[in-house]
Design a binder for these strands. Structure first.
Lengths: 152, 152
DNA sequence: AACAAATACGTGTATATACACGTATTATAA
DNA sequence: TTATAATACGTGTATATACACGTATTTGTT
């Protein structure tokens, strides 16, 4: 669906402004698709993101701060996301011995299992939904990074 | 900043998968930049979106459903966003005479004033932050629409 | 060593998101 | 015309986002 139909608007200030809205809309669409698939695993988008980050260091532990700075949406409130993962026993939380300010988090076996199962589904859905080839994806990545090249 | 630095990850399944994360991250970055600017007007990102949609039909009224289907993030809860705009007296709410199920919304003069002032700032920030030219933006729009071409 | 600054987490509050459900009203059909 | 379905909105709940602030711990300075 074209952006014009999606948000029922035809007047854009210029192509750059339209690209901004297009990025926001496409991100919403992607999140919606992914959340729908994660639902069967009882996971939210952000909970999945945290599990994946933990997997990247597994079997090492990670502190809350390290998880936070790797998240796609930076200012999400990691302690509370971890609360919910802990309740579901997908992660374990304990205080670091080296620095008692730090809470260190580890994936449990249940966490690994659910992460692997959900990743299989998400990867498949991503392949089905995102209809660009590798070359186009590369162009897209370059353009997005150019958009953000003014990032502080 | 490159995506790899932004989320401190270097292993992506492929360029398409990476593009998905890149879209999500860029959208988060754009929203953060815009929200920071809207703060001085006491508006959230979504409140601004609703005001803009209303402006598109002004001075005509719009019902809640028409606003909702024009929003960038479709499933946001429009009645409650309108609640907050109404409290700030930026919109007026009343029941439609033709169809009593419908609530119709109009911009107030205060709403127009704040919308115009904030739009000036947002447009300027958008120009400053999004460092692509018109041709690149056109390419980006085409690629994003290709990504979504499987949209239901 | 004592104090100040920085760090790491957690919490509180307002708003938004996602989804289910309830109610009033209108449209459709038997 | 009466019953049923569809529509439009609002509300309730759980989770997430954005931001400010509090507390414990560590680091750095004098």
């Amino acid at each position: 669906m074209k952006l014009e139909q999606a948000i029922q608007s035809t007047k854009f200030k210029n192509e750059v402004h339209k690209a901004g809205l297009n990025i926001l809309y496409t991100a919403w669409w992607l999140k919606t698709v992914m959340s729908r698939e994660l639902k069967e695993f009882g996971l939210t988008h952000e909970q999945y993101n945290v599990l994946r980050i933990l997997k990247g260091k597994y079997p090492d532990q990670m502190c809350v701060r390290d998880i936070a700075c790797r998240m796609i949406e930076k200012s999400s409130n990691v302690p509370r996301i971890i609360d919910r993962l802990e309740i579901k026993k997908l992660v374990k939380r304990s205080t670091s011995a080296l620095d008692k300010r730090e809470t260190v988090i580890t994936l449990t076996q249940a966490g690994i299992t659910i992460l692997e199962a959900s990743t299989v589904v998400l990867n498949r859905v991503m392949d089905e939904m995102m209809l660009v080839n590798e070359t186009e994806a590369l162009d897209l990545n370059n353009l997005l990074e150019k958009v953000r090249s003014n990032e502080e």
